[in-house]
Amino acid sequence: MPDEDLSIRASALNHWFGAGEARKQALFDIDLRIRRGSFIVMVGPSGSGKTTLLTLLGCLREIQEGSVLLLGQELRNATTAQNVRLRRRLGFIFQAHNLHESLTARQNVLMGLQVKGRMDREVSDKAAAHILTLLGLSERLDYLPANLSGGQKQRVAIGRALVGNPDVVLADEPTAALDWETAASVVDLLKQLGRARGTTTLMVTHDNRILDRADRILTLEDGRLVGDEDRT
């Protein structure tokens, strides 16, 4: 697979936590190539290193050993400014919604657009309203998070991650708080973005129903990549 078709390429990736005698290896020799536009699900038991891998690929942690090429940029020894610029091309969906309590649903989503620079207010307002409508929140645009249910908050967080048309979406159990119908619509939306815009999604989940929709399933155990099933 040529590099230009890849969103992510990890080679001989190792990672440790702690120092001295308490130093513990969390990832072992991870080699991974993820094609642009694919919908990848990562599974594995707790403590298997899924989240660590997600944070390394999302340039939220420093690469200690090995190499990660994200959207054509090497993350090893990347500067803070390079990491910040690269993160603007990603969409993060966290297990906890992490919405800003003082901002309405629409304003929280606008934060995902604003990071890319100044935009016409009307255009960005419409884009935020559009993505929230797609996620079934057209009636809740101006609600504060405190007035939304858990599932609604998570959908706002998903909207915030997707509104800026990210090149890569990194998601950690994003559908845990959603009913199946909503979860399925979110997965369909992510897959549709992959087809239409080449958005790559790497999702950690334990939901077996989502596994059925994945293009590829990666399995991690004890910090090692033990399974890589291509379902396309």
Partner: peptide, 13 residues
Amino acid sequence: LREYATFKAMGYG
């Protein structure tokens, strides 16, 4: 702090 960390992850400097 959690909201600010989220913004950091999103690429705010």
